[in-house]
Design a protein around this nucleic acid. Structure first.
Lengths: 216, 216
DNA sequence: GTCAACGTTCTTGCATACAAGATTTATCAT
DNA sequence: ATGATAAATCTTGTATGCAAGAACGTTGAC
């Protein structure tokens, strides 16, 4: 796993941010991280530079690194873009999927059914991720798949909240059903539309969530 | 300009890659870059880490950094994604543009007309960039705009080639005309489709170019 | 009691140092 | 002459050191 220290640190810190271990706005102290991971400041700095380039961390000159807080509006914008990319992935998948892709998608979909009907939202979260990744793979566009995975990952904490909302898991699974249908039928435009909506809804739900929280 | 050394290096090296000063596959020697820019290896490494995170360079453990060569297929994939994002930007712009946006877009379009009719493909290149950036801005999605600018930048060397192709400048400008019309008319779907095609064509042209070169 | 100016301390930014792995070169055997 | 092996050299990866700027606390004035 650990090719070198910097990559390991990058992943560790990134995971910490994604899992909200390092909350938005939190200061990332170099020596603190260095002692925590038992290395010197140099690789820590290099890892922070990478996270800065990705947009997860802001480095203010002479004032250290902080976890970026995108803010509700920007998160909504990110969902908007995600919806578009997923739509593209779906439309390409519908045109290009192979037998192997079909098998993978159906397997992931079956797992989603299992965790959905079990009402296990945490398990559904992972199965859902596999389902979407199966679609990215079926698009046979490596670049698109990478972009989708990266964005998916960055939006992870915000999507996770939503699955707790009443009925969201069941609704999500129902939407998956139509998406699978459209893709396997080779209906690119329908797959695109359905996936776009599937993701958009998450963005809208997020807005609702924010509005609800704000009004209290 | 130079907030700090690392950012300056990052930009310098990135520009070097974009402008093909550092060709794909070229090795980026740390001490060489350090002496060239009159700094130590540390900031050079930090800059390379950032470029690695963006996907412009590959860092092979213990074997140094090389400029990534995307290869024709991946470049085509990047155009595919770019087309989608531009389409989204166009559709959002059609729904959200302000008076100020209209002015900026029309001004950029007028400049494109000037450089197009003058047959100055280098000047058109810059005016074209401003035109597209005006649309990103009019989308009023900061995240989308950033993604578009980043991808636009990475595809720069490949797009630049195409403007040299016979009639491409004139065709491009004609397409801009319809795009402006659709956006200012508030026709989101038409703006999306036109922009998607406008960019897709570049990807296809790139493929043609590669095919032509390969067949010789 | 509050606010401001100053000095201390802490943190970052870059340079340098050193160790370990990769590459190249030279030597030797076939 | 060619191939392999080993030594020398070069490069990267990480640690440490030092200087400059920012944060913080203290002291003093009003």
């Amino acid at each position: 796993m650990a090719e070198n220290v910097v990559q390991r640190l990058r992943d560790e810190i990134e995971n910490g941010i994604i899992s909200n271990d390092f909350a938005p706005g939190a200061r990332l102290d170099e020596v603190q991280l260095a002692t925590r991971f038992g290395v010197s400041r140099t690789p820590v700095r290099e890892a922070l530079m990478q996270l800065n380039a990705i947009g997860l961390v802001e480095i203010r000159p002479r004032r250290g690194a902080v976890v970026i807080d995108p803010g509700p509006h920007r998160i909504f914008e990110m969902f908007e873009v995600m919806a578009e990319l997923e739509g593209l992935a779906g439309s390409l998948a519908a045109r290009r999927f192979t037998d192997a892709d079909r098998t993978t998608i159906l397997a992931a979909h079956a797992d989603c059914e299992r965790s959905s009907s079990a009402g296990d939202s945490d398990l559904y979260y992972y199965d859902n991720e596999r389902f979407h990744k199966a679609i990215y793979a079926a698009s046979h566009s490596g670049f698109l798949a990478e972009q989708c995975v990266a964005l998916h990952r960055r939006l992870q904490p915000y999507r996770r909240l939503q699955l707790r909302v009443r009925n969201r898991v069941a609704t999500s699974f129902a939407e998956h059903g139509s998406i699978v249908e459209a893709i396997l039928a080779g209906d690119a435009e329908r797959a695109r539309t359905l996936l776009r909506q599937h993701v958009s809804i998450q963005g809208e739900r997020f807005s609702d969530l924010v509005a609800t929280l704000a009004s209290r």
